[in-house]
Design a protein around this nucleic acid. Sequence first.
DNA 1: TTACCTGCAAACTGTTTGCCGCTGT
DNA 2: ACAGCGGCAAACAGTTTGCAGGTAA
Lengths: 136, 136
Amino acid sequence: MDIAGDIRAKGRRMTVQRRLVLDALRRARHHTTAEEISRSIRARYPQIDPSTVYRNLEALEQLGYVTHTHLDDRVTRWRRADAEPHGHLVCRRCGSEQEIPIDILEPLAKRLRGEHGFRADLAHSAVVGLCRKCAG
Amino acid sequence: MDIAGDIRAKGRRMTVQRRLVLDALRRARHHTTAEEISRSIRARYPQIDPSTVYRNLEALEQLGYVTHTHLDDRVTRWRRADAEPHGHLVCRRCGSEQEIPIDILEPLAKRLRGEHGFRADLAHSAVVGLCRKCAG
DNA sequence: TTACCTGCAAACTGTTTGCCGCTGT
DNA sequence: ACAGCGGCAAACAGTTTGCAGGTAA
């Protein structure tokens, strides 16, 4: 898909800053933070302001190209919307993170939908608890 | 249980500030925020500083009397540790919150434990998604 | 008496906003 | 030409911290 064309078709613009944010997200294997994206862009283009990164992440999320998730701190994690979705386990003791296949979470999503009419996005926030090591 | 005695037995102190925080949590039907606790205390005892509330919440959590949860904003929610645990559904569109019985979440917890050795605390963070109205 | 605890003020982190000139389309 | 967008600086919310004096045990 031609993101640039799509963005323009929606009356928005494809600026170099927007492209750089998109590229940074493409380079990141998993989720990243705004700060990390900002830092990686500023390494080459120091004139690009962090606030521009924030504004672009928000815009790109509205446009449907990126989404964000929350682990157990106050930092928002961003990733491309077309990456395969997955869940996260984060240990409240050692802080370790672990990705899990989304289908483990499916039965719960189904049940919440059936019993509460609630369409859960179980990839949105991490499951917090104790990892095997720390629970031992 | 005698919290005051228990706290002293652990080498900590029962101050009026600490008691006020505990009382505020007892008065609150569900989870509250530090700001709310602080405000309710300061209505009567304006000299008590918000930072004291934060420090006490942390201390009381370490001592095992309170726990915190996260909904989908950046505010920490506090409650007594002896309140019955429950899950939360929060709508990303309208912001509505809904409590759900913890046993709905049990099968997932069990599975995470079995397949990943991970002891999930599914009451710790809200499940985010679209409520019935907003999904309609 | 001696940790622990408090109030106060200041710092801090992650993020948002106002302003205003610039630039894609 | 005219929205949308960017850089800059300042504001913001929620929370944390350093300090110096106060207080529970």
